[in-house]
Every structure is written in structure tokens, then in C-alpha cells.
């Protein structure tokens, strides 16, 4: 049972307050979509969930992120351990250029100094889970950069899955991809949600509706810090939004 929740998250960069009082609960084995116009802090927020946030030099934080009831920002918590349990896929595909496809999948083990009984099996299962095994099974030794953009992104997903995370964070995983690749990644997400909790930032409203069961709408108005304007089931946020601004946004009136 893995439960992830954010309590009163506030974020600063230097003196600039960019996120205010975000409270979200991410239920187990569900997909939560974070939507909102550019610059509203959704990407910033998702990075607080696995302590990638603190890598930005001027970053500041208030509030708690609870993973199974433990605040991951407690001084006694090793960020490396957090990131092992909470995996992340980035906006731009970032396979390691000096490694082969196979080595990319296994890179997490090497980077985290873990051993695995059956590395070849792990490569296959991970690539299968990212639904790309059939495409690459004959050329596992090729450099990762020889793949297309969409394949590279799925390789990055496979790379994360090899570490068997409980939670997978996806920061606009399809924004750099063509519609076909986007489709396949969405299918992957729907399969994966049977096994893990997924948080996905997306600009694509249809995508949010297709893959998520609950949605949070972020908005930053006129230089104010970003806030969650509306949070509920995806159906409710898109079809019966309570807040007028949400209504405007999901119906394409701004952003």
C-alpha cells in the first residue's frame, strides 16, 4: 500500500513565491493529471514529489510530502531512497547517449549500485512493460540515440520501470512527440496504472481525459503564486467544473 500526498506545499525560487498551499492526495494505482497554463507551477510541483526540486540552487520549500506517512523532506530521509521509489520521466527524452539500449534499461541498477539476479530478464520485462520490446529486441546493443524520439521516451519509461518504482512521475512526457508516439505512451500509462501510482503533467486536455481518473487544475494569476484552483475526479473537473476559471480553461478559452 503506497500512498503519496502533498500537504501545504509552498515553493520559492529565491524570493519569488511560485507555488502556494498545494494540498493533493494521490490514491494508489490511479492516474492523477496536473493541468494548467504554462508557468503555473505544475512542473515545479511534480519535481517536489521526488526531491528533484532541491537540485535547483535557489529553491525553497514549505510544507510536507508524505510517502506512506513519512515526510520525505525529513533530514533523516535519503533523497536517493526516495527517488528509487518515486521514478520520473522528463519532458524531453533523455536516454544516456554513451550507453546502448540495453545498458540504458539497466542504468538505474548501475547508478544505484543495485544487483539483479537476472539482468537480461529485467531488460525484457521492462521493455515489454514500456511496450517496445518487439521493436528493439534485435538491436539491444545499438546506441540509445539511434532510436526515434518516441522510442527514446519509451526507453526512458522502461529505464524507470526497471527500478520497480511505486510511483511514476511524468512531466509532460509527450510534449516533444508526434501523435502516434503519444498514443502508444498513453496506452502504456493505462497498462501501468494497474501496478503503480502515476502523476502526469500535461498540456493536452484530451490526454488528461483519456488517461487520468482525477485531475488538478493549477493556475497562477497576475504574478501571484500558482495555486490549485480545482481538484477532483477527471470527469467532474472537465464536465462540471465548480470554478469559472476551470471552466474557461478546459473549454479552451485561455491558456
Amino acid at each position: 500500500m503506497t500512498q503519496l500526498s502533498a500537504q501545504d506545499i509552498n515553493v520559492w525560487f529565491g524570493q519569488r513565491h511560485v507555488l502556494k498551499d498545494v494540498n493533493l492526495l494521490f490514491p494508489e494505482r490511479e492516474v492523477t493529471a496536473l493541468i494548467g497554463p504554462s508557468g503555473c507551477g505544475k512542473s515545479t510541483f511534480i519535481r517536489t514529489l521526488n526531491r528533484m526540486h532541491e537540485l535547483i540552487p535557489s529553491a525553497g520549500l514549505g510544507g510536507k510530502v508524505l510517502l506512506d506517512g513519512v515526510d520525505i523532506y525529513e533530514p533523516s530521509v535519503d533523497p536517493v531512497g526516495v527517488r528509487l521509489r518515486v521514478g520520473m520521466v522528463f519532458q524531453k527524452p533523455n536516454p544516456f547517449p554513451t550507453m546502448s539500449i540495453k545498458d540504458n534499461v539497466l542504468s538505474g541498477l548501475k547508478l544505484a549500485s543495485r544487483k539483479h539476479a537476472d539482468p537480461n530478464g529485467l531488460v525484457e520485462t521492462s521493455l515489454r512493460r514500456a511496450s517496445m520490446w518487439n521493436e528493439v529486441k534485435d538491436r539491444l546493443g545499438d546506441p540509445a540515440l539511434s532510436l526515434s524520439g518516441g522510442q527514446q521516451q519509451r526507453l526512458c519509461i522502461a529505464r524507470s520501470l526497471a527500478m520497480d518504482p511505486d510511483v511514476l512521475l511524468m512531466d509532460e512526457p509527450c510534449s516533444a512527440l508526434d501523435p502516434g508516439s503519444t498514443r502508444r505512451i498513453e496506452e502504456t500509462i493505462l497498462e501501468l496504472k494497474e501496478e503503480m501510482t502515476i502523476v502526469i503533467v500535461t498540456h493536452n486536455m484530451q490526454q488528461a481525459q483519456r488517461v487520468s481518473s482525477q485531475t488538478a487544475f493549477f493556475l497562477a494569476e497576475d504574478g501571484n503564486p500558482g495555486q490549485v484552483v480545482e481538484f477532483g475526479s477527471t470527469d467532474q473537473v472537465f464536465n462540471q467544473p465548480v470554478d469559472l476559471r476551470t471552466n474557461d480553461y478546459v473549454n479552451g478559452h485561455f491558456g
Binding site: N10, H53, E54, G60, L61, G63, Y73, P79
Partner: peptide
Amino acid sequence: PIERRSLRAKPFSK
């Protein structure tokens, strides 16, 4: 004022 936590990313491993 909201409490701002210390984010010293201290290296954990040896």
C-alpha cells in the same frame, strides 16, 4: 509567513 524549510541537499552516501 509560511514556514520555509531548509533544503540543504546534503550528500547522504559516503
